[in-house]
Design a protein around this nucleic acid. Sequence first.
DNA 1: CCTTGTGAAGGGGTTCACAGCA
DNA 2: TGCTGTGAACCCCTTCACAAGG
Lengths: 216, 216
Amino acid sequence: MPDSIHAIPEVVILRLPLYVRVLTQLKDEGTEVISSRELGDRLSVTPAQIRKDLSYFGRFGKQGRGYNVSYLVGELRQVLGLDRQWNTAVIGIGRLGRAIINYPGFAPEGFKVVAAFDADPAQVGRQFEDVAIQSIGEMQQTIRERNIAIAIVAVPAPQAQRVISELVSCGVKAILNYAPIAPQVPEDVRVRNIDPVLALQTMTYHLKVRQDEAGS
Amino acid sequence: MPDSIHAIPEVVILRLPLYVRVLTQLKDEGTEVISSRELGDRLSVTPAQIRKDLSYFGRFGKQGRGYNVSYLVGELRQVLGLDRQWNTAVIGIGRLGRAIINYPGFAPEGFKVVAAFDADPAQVGRQFEDVAIQSIGEMQQTIRERNIAIAIVAVPAPQAQRVISELVSCGVKAILNYAPIAPQVPEDVRVRNIDPVLALQTMTYHLKVRQDEAGS
DNA sequence: CCTTGTGAAGGGGTTCACAGCA
DNA sequence: TGCTGTGAACCCCTTCACAAGG
């Protein structure tokens, strides 16, 4: 059991879903075996990195041949916990929140929105896609009862930190945050931010350098 | 000019927009001066890291006092190239593409959607928010004429790589990709992916470990 | 006394390179 | 021959710790 000897670097965990995605695509295309080199080409990652990453979790390959695609994707899904359903709750049912509830991409991957919350009393009781909107006050109880492990935050920025703190106090350990803030959470809580503006702002630096060079 | 002596690590560029965001918020709250320690607390980053990051671009602080918030935010915006307007194009005008065009969060940050493209001839000619939808064939010309530096890809996954390759051949060097794929681009092209499913999948590993521990 | 800016030390992740095996 | 799995080397980023200065 290699994973009990050394802690697994967080970056490795961040890459595994990428591997799963490409492997799944390869499987659908009918590819049965793939080498670390070919997989690396598809992902712009070095073959050594792929082999090293996989080695944290087991020995999935065959020397001289490569990796069996369906076997590997199955193992990785198990490692990541993608072999089960994860119940989620959406908080904030504005335009974005409704789009998230209606988004058809979550369910096939095992992420099911089973609850929705909004601070606006006028929203409470309405239904979207089988999900009835509840008041924020009901959050703690519902999260417990419905075994909700992941919260998806889609409230306006000014309320986001308060909502996230409340989710943390409800025991939620994983948060997908769409609000444009830098949330503060205890270190045993994981947050991933979806923030298109931030993503754009990380690219302009290089564009600027290029522009300035062209201008001089 | 420290940035001409040593290349700036990419991770630093990724953090600067976060600094800008929090500093802007602090400025709005009326804070005039902040130390690297206080800023670090807000961002869950060590003070040393903030000081080191900033030192790549200049000496913005005052010993014994800290950093002047509005001065620092101004300098960083300039460093990142956020002191100008960036024209963008949206490709793929389905539900997601329309949401992006209508999204009110881009313009105030200097990102303006000035063009939109779709492969469906039935869509071509329609208008959303002042933007007329054009055919994919018009992309190259429009990108040049309208000085579009950033493309936002919102086409279905199967078409995404083809569209991205086409954008690259149009000379686009920055792409915000919403399609759930791992795009392949030349190394002088920057891509940021917005992928909620991937974000969720990077969190389940830790939830799983926790679950398994509880069960044993 | 407080906080910056920064060389130097430290640590963690990537890459190398090769033994092992099909 | 081809490719995996992996210890070791390497490298880059983070953190330390302190001189400098308000």
